[in-house]
Design a protein around this nucleic acid. Structure first.
Length: 118
DNA sequence: CTTATGACGTGGT
DNA sequence: AACCACGCCATAA
């Protein structure tokens, strides 16, 4: 328990600190995506036990600090397409990083058959 | 309290 | 492949 104050006396209280666990799991999953591989927002959510939290994963990725070491660039949509605008700074950076890991990006998309993880 | 808004996903045209 | 309509869900307005 992170905060003893939140330990409720009500047996059926809502799980109020689920978001904290989710974020924790989210970081762990993100950090475990191997170089040279990619996964999807939905898959990250699933692996982190967030259910249908794909959009939330996207939000959190966008909030990562600029200098993070976490491989945010290895997360694409379920079709293997980069969701970041290709002309944007971050979009170009994502493409650059993927290519640098030996992942071919053609028309803003990568081959999941080849680089999909898990 | 309602609407709008997404680094989303799925299913149908 | 491209588009669209919904569903989803936390946040913002």
């Amino acid at each position: 328990m992170k905060d003893p104050q939140k330990v409720t006396v009500f047996p059926q209280s809502p799980d109020v600190d689920a978001p904290e666990r989710h974020k924790e799991a989210f970081f762990q999953v993100l950090a475990s995506i191997p170089a040279g591989k990619v996964t999807s927002y939905g898959k990250v959510a699933e692996l982190a036990g967030m259910g249908r939290g794909a959009r939330l994963v996207g939000r959190w990725l966008g909030q990562l600090p600029g200098g993070t070491r976490l491989p945010w660039h290895r997360v694409l949509n379920s079709q293997g397409k980069l969701s970041l605008p290709p002309e944007s700074t971050s979009g170009a950076e994502q493409r650059r990083r993927l290519m640098a890991e030996g992942i071919l990006v053609r028309n803003g998309r990568v081959n999941l058959r080849q680089h999909g993880w898990p």
